[in-house]
Amino acid sequence: MKKKILIIDDDPAVVDYLTTLFEDNGYAACSAMTAQDGLKRAQKERPDLITLDLELPDEWGPRFYRKLSSDKELKNTPVIVISGLSGNKYAVSKAVASLSKPFDRDELLKIVKENV
């Protein structure tokens, strides 16, 4: 069964790009454009990994992560922060990695492979 990745980003171009990238590399992908929707999708889909933008329309990434980590079923889901904001590396301290946009697709795939 394919490993599933949840993409949380409010930029449709980034969502499209990541969806294609993950699907082309043998993963299943689903997405959400807000933190609230992201949490619902995570609870429903039980993804093996989440990519998280820091600046979402309804909430900032660290607050989303706080909610995620208080859910017993989801708290160990690896999260990769993908953001264009400076300082993003330290924003979610328990993220498995943080990448700045524009990011290197090979680096992202390598991190995903290591964590799912």
């Binding site: 900032w60 990434g61 607050r63 904001l85 300082g87 993003n88 590396k89 330290y90």
Partner: peptide
């Protein structure tokens, strides 16, 4: 630190 500015509100 920039990392301290990504919360939005206090809870």
């Amino acid at each position: 630190r920039p990392a301290g500015s990504f919360w939005g509100g206090f809870s």
